[in-house]
Design a protein around this nucleic acid. Sequence first.
DNA 1: CGTCCATTTGATCAGGGTCAAGACGAGTGG
DNA 2: CCACTCGTCTTGACCCTGATCAAATGGACG
Lengths: 234, 234
Amino acid sequence: MASLDRSLIAGLPVFDGIAAADLDRIISQARSMRIARDQLVFEQEQEAHSFFLLLDGHVRVVKSTPDGHEVTVRYISPGELMGIASALGRTTYPANAIAAVDCVALAWPSQLWPTFATSFPSFSANTYKVVGSRLQDAHTRVIEMSTEQVEQRVAHALLKLIKQSGKKTEEGIMIDFPISRQDVAEMTGTTLHTVSRLLSAWEDQGLVKSGRQRVVVIEPHRLVVVSEGRGSKS
Amino acid sequence: MASLDRSLIAGLPVFDGIAAADLDRIISQARSMRIARDQLVFEQEQEAHSFFLLLDGHVRVVKSTPDGHEVTVRYISPGELMGIASALGRTTYPANAIAAVDCVALAWPSQLWPTFATSFPSFSANTYKVVGSRLQDAHTRVIEMSTEQVEQRVAHALLKLIKQSGKKTEEGIMIDFPISRQDVAEMTGTTLHTVSRLLSAWEDQGLVKSGRQRVVVIEPHRLVVVSEGRGSKS
DNA sequence: CGTCCATTTGATCAGGGTCAAGACGAGTGG
DNA sequence: CCACTCGTCTTGACCCTGATCAAATGGACG
C-alpha cells in the first residue's frame, strides 16, 4: 500500500492549527479505503471500531426506526469527519452511512480518538465545533419540522444541498450526486409523491430542472422566496 | 454573600471524577443566583457571558423564529448545565432560557470554560457526553417529527417529562412544574387545541389527570402503548 | 367581584398522505 | 439490436389528520 501523505489532510478545518509533524503522525496511523456506491461505510448499532474522514465522494447518513422508517440525518461532503461516535461518548454508531457515489476515505481506529484529543488541543477544539454545529443543524431541523410547510422544508433542503455540494453548470447549480425523490423525502419528513409534485410544479415555473436522480436549481433566489413561505400562491 | 460549598456540586455527573480540591477551586469562582419564575436566565443571540448549573427549579429552553413561532428545545432539571455556548464554539446563546418556577443556579464567566476544559480532563470528557446526548436527543426529535403522529409525539413528550421531572403522588406521577397545553404544543410541534383534545380524551380513558398548568400521568404503561402508535383506535 | 388567562369544545377545511396506475428510461440478457 | 424488466418518477382521486376559526367555560388572583 502506498504510504499516505499529509497533504491529504493539511488545510482541512478539522486539522487546522496542527503542526506538520503532528499531521504526519496522525496520517501515518490512518488506513485509506474506497467504498463502492451503495455500500455501507458503517452501520447503526454496530461497534464503532473506527472513525472516518471522507476524502472524496458523498455519504448519506440515515437513521432507521424499528418500524421501518428511514430518516436521512445529513450528507457528508469531502473533508468532513464521520462516524465520530467517540466524540459523543458512544461506543456504537448512531446511524447507517451509505456511499451515495464511489468514495475514498481515511479510517482511524476509535482507540486513537482520546489520544488525538489530548495530544492535539486544536483537534479537540475543532471537533467540539463540529459537534456543536451538528447540534445546531439538528435543532434547525426540529424547528423547520415544527413550523414550516412541506413546500418550505423541501426548498430549504435543496438550498442546503446546493450550498454544500452544488456544482455550477451552464443551466444552473446541480446537486453533485445522484439523489432521488425518495431521498429528498427522507430528508424532509414527507413522501416521494409530494416531493415529485413539488419538483414538477417548480419545473413548470422554471425554478428547477430535474430528472432521474438528478436535480438542478435554476433560480436559487426564487427558491429562497419559496423557502421563506412567501411563494406565489396564485 | 455566604461562601459556596463544594457539596453543592459534588456527586453531579458533570463533575464526576474531579478531585475535592479542584471542586473547591471550581466552586470558588462561581456566583450563585436566584431567578424568579418567568424570568429570563439568558437570551437568544445575546453575548454568552456565563454558563450555568441549575441547582434547583426547572428551566425551559426555547428558540424563537423570526416569524414569531416558539419551539421548546428542552427542559433543564437540577444538576444540569445550561447556556454552554462555549462548548459548541459559539459566543452567543442559541436560545432563550426561562425559569418555569423560581430557580437557584450557579454561574461562571464563559472565559473560565477553556480553563476548566484543559485543567480538568474529566470535566471535558463529561461535557462532551452532555453535548453528545443532546445531539442524540435532537436527532430523536427529528425522527419523531418525521415519522410519528401528533398523538404519539405528545405521549412521548409526557413520558420524557415524567422520566426527567416526575414526582410520585398517590394519584400517579406528576410533572413537577407548571406546564400549560401551549408549552406541550411547543415541545411537539402542534397547537394547544390539539394537546387539549388529546389530554381530554386520555383523561376520559383514565390515562392521565390534568388541570390548569398541571399534568399527572396515572397509567404510564398505557401511555407507552399510545406513544408506540398502538393506541386503541376503537 | 371582576379581570385575565388557561382550557375546552364545536365546526370547518385544507395540506398532504395514501392508494392506484401508468409512463419513462436505463440496464440486461437473448 | 431488440425485448424485457426493474426502479424511478408522474399524476390522479380520495380521504384523514390536525390546523384554523370561533365561542364559551372555569379558575386564580388582585
